[in-house]
């Protein structure tokens, strides 16, 4: 019973983690394509690849900055209402 429960919980956890990662990846693709590939040519240029790589790093960084500020704000609102 315990192991079936664990398996069930792990399935749920994995599915949620996968869907979060996919959502972030889709967003990153969309934002970085818009920013780095302004005029699509016959192949990706070196500078476009450099831009994409940096953009991905920055998007992940932006995600963590936003997450941190949101957490700080939520904690402040909780303190204020407590």
């Amino acid at each position: 019973m315990a192991s079936r429960k664990e398996a069930f919980m792990n399935t749920i956890r994995n599915e949620i983690a996968l869907s979060n990662a996919q959502e972030l990846l889709n967003k990153t693709n969309e934002k970085c394509y818009a920013k780095c590939i302004t005029k699509p040519g016959t192949s990706l240029s070196g500078s476009e690849e450099t831009c994409l790589a940096r953009c991905m790093d920055r998007y992940m960084e932006a995600f963590s900055i936003v997450s941190r500020s949101y957490q700080t704000r939520l904690a402040r609102e909780r303190d204020a209402s407590a």
């Binding site: 959502e23 972030l24 932006a62 995600f63 936003v66």
Partner: peptide, 10 residues
């Protein structure tokens, strides 16, 4: 929520 705000703030 964080995903949406990241997109908007980006």
């Amino acid at each position: 929520t964080v995903q949406n705000m990241t997109s908007m703030c980006w």
